[in-house]
């Protein structure tokens, strides 16, 4: 180096790149890179006004559900009971959660919260809440049964553009009673249902979400796949939905009754006997 001509030390190219790489690595530790995930913010409202399980077919027997003979008979009995006014086949009548897969009908608005480790799905109707673990965990040895089941998911970049576009989910570990819809499409009482889903935004309309749902269950002769759709509301209101506060159905033993406008008990079908009041000391009050 010649004297009298100060030269500041210039970082080498490799040092600059290394420093930037460290910064990038740090950001990956600290930041959730939401740009890699589809933008699912907002409120999702079911696109199908009717709520039969397969929205592409009419309700009831015309769903052509691939039921086993035993469960087809149960379904027909459920339909008959429903037409006579008895809601016994629908667990929602007494405010039990829809559970999976029925909760994905999304009777009330749905919110999806995406984080790196977990995608959460909250449906206000009956307060169904799903945690879909996307942290790469294995299935636990034992799953405590629940209506919503235990879900493991995986984000997939199907079109190779460097961003995830499909969430694949498998859900197991259920308890019952659950049905697929309000008509009483049954699931097997062994609760060994497996639900597989592919959740993705529509390619042409980013405010339309699809859920391709395949149900594998011993009440069915084959896996049954339906696709349900949801429209996005970007400026949502979230009214509180409380089944237990507003439910007009009353279940006592094996019978269902209605709560009338005056708050008193009413029959749900013609000639329904009143409930047995054997545990009360005095006879029922006469008309006031």
């Amino acid at each position: 180096m010649k004297p009298g001509r100060p030269v500041r030390r210039v970082p080498r190219a490799s040092s600059i790149i290394a420093f930037a790489a460290v910064l990038l690595a740090m950001s990956r530790v600290d930041a959730f890179d939401e740009t890699k995930y589809p933008e699912l913010n907002g409120q999702w409202v079911r696109a199908h006004p009717r709520s039969q399980w397969d929205p592409s077919k009419p309700r009831g027997l015309r769903q052509q559900a691939p039921l086993t003979a035993e469960y087809q008979a149960i379904f027909e009995a459920n339909l008959k009971a429903l037409h006579s006014g008895n809601l016994g086949a629908d667990p929602q009548a007494y405010c039990l959660p829809s559970g999976m897969p029925r909760m994905m009908i999304a009777y009330e608005p749905m919110e999806i919260i995406v984080t790196a480790e977990t995608t959460y799905i909250r449906v206000d109707h009956l307060n169904d809440f799903r945690r879909i673990f996307t942290d790469g965990r294995a299935w636990p040895v034992q799953v405590k049964p629940s209506f919503d089941g235990y879900s493991i998911g995986r984000w997939i970049d199907e079109d190779g553009d460097g961003r995830f576009d499909v969430l694949e989910v498998e859900t197991r570990g259920f308890k019952g009673p659950r049905t697929l819809d309000a008509d009483g499409l049954p699931l097997h009482r062994d609760n060994r249902t497996v639900v597989k889903e592919r959740i993705y935004l529509d390619k042409a309309n980013r405010d339309l979400l699809h859920d391709e749902i395949t149900t594998i269950d011993h009440a069915y002769t084959r896996p049954w796949t339906v696709t349900r759709d949801y429209n996005r509301e970007r400026n949502p209101l979230w009214p509180e939905y409380l089944c237990t506060e507003n439910n007009s159905h009353i279940s006592i033993g094996r019978e269902f009754y209605f709560r009338g406008g005056d708050g008193e008990l009413m029959p749900a079908y013609k000639d329904q006997p009143p409930p047995d009041l054997r545990y009360f000391e005095q006879p029922a009050k006469e008309e006031r």
Binding site: P273, P274, L277, Y279
Partner: peptide, 26 residues
């Protein structure tokens, strides 16, 4: 309350049973 055997039960002493005026065949 509803008992384990499926019957309506009182939740306090001397609680009156429900009004069954809407059941014509009571």
């Amino acid at each position: 309350a509803v008992s384990a055997d499926g019957y309506l039960t009182p939740t306090r002493q001397r609680q009156p049973p429900p009004d069954l005026r809407h059941f014509p065949n009571r």
